[in-house]
């Protein structure tokens, strides 16, 4: 029972911070909201007993990605400084309607559908198997993703490099 209360707290935290990301009037605040939301998701992984994934989530999102985003924010700070320009585009109201509709559809289908329960005891996820599956069943995919990452890193360097000509 305590777990479920905790779950609800986490869920509310995630939804609230996610809303903060998309409605906040300050980009820095939005970035911090995102950081919290991603950490909350890591908590969700703990509820799902996939602790390893929670760790990965915190390390990569909470660490690397969030830092990267903050860095980029600083690099692209508007030169105008004090003048606040709206962070939302002109189609924001329509976007709200569309998003609410989408949320309704998704939640409705999640709740209405009778999901099959194939696993008897969801509390015991055999985490030790993750490396086996990752390196055996998904070996080729793993290598491809590695190459993708490499290419992305090289591409990012080339794109962001300060060229002499500029």
């Amino acid at each position: 029972m305590a777990v479920e209360v905790l779950w609800w707290l986490f869920a509310i935290l995630i939804v609230g911070t996610a809303l903060g990301v998309v409605v906040s009037r300050s980009v820095i605040h939005a970035a911090i909201f995102l950081l919290v939301a991603l950490a909350g998701i890591a908590g969700m992984y703990v509820f799902l007993t996939v602790e390893f994934l929670a760790l990965v989530q915190l390390l990569i999102y909470g660490g690397a990605v969030a830092v990267l985003v903050l860095l980029a924010l600083m690099l692209t700070r508007q030169a105008t400084g004090g003048e606040r320009i709206s962070l939302n585009g002109p189609q924001a109201p329509f976007a709200a309607i569309a998003a609410i509709g989408l949320a309704a559809i998704l939640v409705a289908s999640a709740v209405v559908t009778t999901w099959p329960r194939l696993v008897d005891d969801p509390d015991a996820v055999p985490l030790g198997r993750i490396s086996e599956v990752l390196f055996e069943d998904f070996g080729a995919t793993f290598i491809l993703v590695s190459i993708l990452l490499l290419v992305a890193v090289v591409g990012a360097i080339i794109l962001a490099r300060q060229e002499d000509a500029e």
Partner: peptide
């Protein structure tokens, strides 16, 4: 699933509504 759906919808709203590329 419901949480995931709500989160996704919030993301969609952000993509559609925000004009700053980093947001």
């Amino acid at each position: 699933l419901a949480l995931s759906g709500i989160l996704f919808a919030i993301g969609v709203y952000g993509v559609l509504a925000r004009r700053n590329a980093i947001l």
